[in-house]
Design a protein around this nucleic acid. Structure first.
Lengths: 396, 396
DNA sequence: CGTCTTTGTCCTGCGAGTGGAGAAAGTGAG
DNA sequence: CTCACTTTCTCCACTCGCAGGACAAAGACG
């Protein structure tokens, strides 16, 4: 079926759509208070948007001492698809035009199986969501991939952890399959956009969003805009040297942050600790599960295992040292920590905070919150929906 | 005398002024090719600018096969003052509206003498330039200081190397003295703006500009705009940890980049080398001058002294390691190296390049030039003039 | 029932901007 | 020198975006 054929015709209409999306006012009068347009002009633009079907006026609001206002809202049947491809799992969610999640699926998957297999899975998950009655079709889709993306074209470039995706026309292919506009971005950037839209970073213009999962990346937001760098690899902090002559990394260097702290590194260190007999708690889990993952370390730490706690603290210190450098460099107003490893919680956060507050200059840290992300695993899909809605709610 | 009372009345006029400033076309027809306005509208705006006196039409250009065009140019009597306050010297220059340097003075000075003494010197240098007939007065002034600045107010905040300047109302005070609008920024940001305006970074939207002098700082340009951070301390990379448990730094930490490589650190290391009898060339200079500075090291290196070369190489390696991290993080399209220490030239550059190209990911370094600044000591004052002209050539 | 408040609509007029006609000023060929 | 053609610049009529005021609609409140 054809959906959302219309786009805003001018900047005013785009502004109105975004106000409505972001939970803004919903009567003509309230909109008028925020857009610096005369009521007459506003009425014209609202009428035009009503004609296009992008917004609807349904019912009347309660009176506030005078004539009752019309409820203006985004078309309730608009649906966005948010896709977040991680290294080891996929998230797919359906949102309405206000980017509220109506349905969310998560499935394990290995990104190394390549784009064709992954696409098949994403499409079947999307079909399942649609079949459950949440959507008749999609008006747009955003998708995040764990690697650098040539943003204008929506094509991954030289992604280290997802060989086989290099140059694959993700945007075009998905657009073809879904029959709707698609935007592609790095998963970390989308997490940042998610937290900016609906999480801890609301109303913060300059912040960093560090995602610690299978790898480590950093979303950079400057002046309210995501900074992607000239080749789309900005924020790739996993291969910054954290330990001189440290552990060898897949990238060929030594001492990369990612080689010392990430989901994979944590699991490896935990196994080492077991082999050296340093932790009974971890050893028990090792024999029970036939191996260890970051989740095991988190559980052991939560149970008070000192070795697990040490591993987390040490990793947090390394990460904190790198972040301290980035804070000095970028002078953000907020640092958000997210990703799979956030299950490690406050032990991790405390270690990071200690390093940053110790090493960066007081002027940069004086009023710098360092917090965990608020949205957890939904940050990515919300950010993805936000990405495509930003695109569709801009003049064509 | 009163000068430049007018400001552009709208965005079109601002655009035209900046086109003319940046050496753009100079007839109505050529301007029209670039501004996406009808010729009629363009003529109106040009006429209005002519009325204000901001631009003048003098003479006719040679024919290009038809009617000869009028030469449109910025008012030839406009004068900007560019001031670059370094840790140990001041640069003051006068430019015309096209930001070409008409006169330039440099004097040694210690910024720690405080704002009053420094201002006196700056004002006397400005007076000297004016007395020499280069300017009857100034239409605006830009000034760079070696520390963080609260940009909107033009006030230094908590500057480590310039105690006594904290909170001093530089913008207001200078504006009062000179009787013209003033903008204040960090000196490194101004260097970046200078190189962007007239140097190696022309037409590059995302780049880093590393200034190595008494301290080390980094100008950050993202999307053509200088990124200053939430408290104006962005780019303060001198206190990023370069060596774990390294040399103690004035900031209280250990191993800061600045403690290992900067004008001051280099001089200190050179003296150490002399004391340990490692370099005859440096020893000779030490007895001759009763001490050593970075200039001596540069001279010794130029003469082939292996110890001096080692010092530079080692410093370059440290700096390169830090820059490598920043490149991974920011993914710039260009890295510019500048500041007083650039006299160390290609030895330094080679060391930095080696580290960056080795440690950063190929995607980020694949097409990344790392070059010396083109403008040398004039970058700061040109950037300062650019700063104020950007301000004055924007709608009031 | 009248007055006040809030919301939304209609109308008029201003100014920005477009696009075409044409004047001004030149080149070059015959 | 004349004529055709090009480029530059000016003038004018017309459109459209938009502001701001008058006014209508609808409800609260005494």
């Amino acid at each position: 079926m054809r959906r959302m054929t219309a786009r805003p015709a001018n900047a005013h209409q785009a502004r109105l759509l975004k106000l409505l999306r972001d939970g803004g006012p919903n009567s003509r009068a309230q909109l008028g208070d925020q857009v610096d347009l005369s009521r007459s002009k506003l009425a014209v633009e609202v009428d035009r948007l009503l004609e296009t079907g992008l917004i609807v006026a349904d019912g009347l609001a309660a009176s506030r001492g005078g004539r009752r206002s019309h409820n203006i809202r985004l078309a309730p049947n608009l649906r966005f698809l948010g896709v977040d491809i991680g290294a080891t799992s996929v998230d797919v969610a359906v949102t309405n035009a206000e980017l509220e999640i109506l349905g969310h699926l998560n499935q394990p998957m290995d990104v190394r199986e390549g784009p064709v297999a992954v696409f098949e899975q994403v499409l079947s998950m999307a079909a399942k969501l649609r079949a459950s009655g949440l959507a008749e079709g999609f008006d747009g889709a955003g998708i995040g991939v764990p690697g650098p993306v040539r943003f204008p074209e929506g094509v991954p470039v030289a992604p280290p952890i997802m060989p086989g995706w290099d140059g694959f026309p993700v945007r075009e292919a998905l657009s073809q399959e879904l029959g709707c506009p698609v935007m592609v971005d790095n998963d970390v950037n989308l997490m940042a956009m998610g937290e900016m839209h609906a999480g801890v970073a609301r109303s913060v213009g300059d912040f960093l969003c560090v995602k610690i999962g299978t790898g480590i990346g950093c979303g950079i937001v400057a002046g309210g805009e995501v900074h992607r760098g000239v080749t789309g690899s900005a924020g790739d902090i996993g291969h910054i040297q954290a330990v001189p002559d440290g552990r060898p990394c897949a990238c060929g260097n030594r001492g990369c942050l990612e080689a010392h702290f990430s989901g994979a590194a944590l699991a490896r260190d935990a196994v080492e600790a077991v082999e050296q007999g340093r932790s009974e708690a971890l050893a028990a889990r090792h024999t029970a599960n036939g191996g260890l993952t970051a989740v095991d370390v988190a559980a052991a730490a939560a149970a008070g295992d000192p070795t697990a706690l040490d591993l987390i603290r040490e990793g947090g210190n390394r990460t904190g040292q790198v972040i301290a450098g980035l804070v000095s460099f970028f002078n953000p107003g907020l640092v958000v920590i997210g990703g799979g490893v956030t299950g490690l919680g406050h032990t991790l956060l405390a270690a990071i905070r200690t390093q940053v507050y110790r090493q960066s200059l007081p002027l940069a840290t004086g009023n710098l919150p360092i917090v965990l992300g608020e949205l957890g695993p939904t940050a990515g899909v919300i950010g993805a929906a936000r990405l495509i809605s930003d695109h569709l709610f801009s003049p064509a």
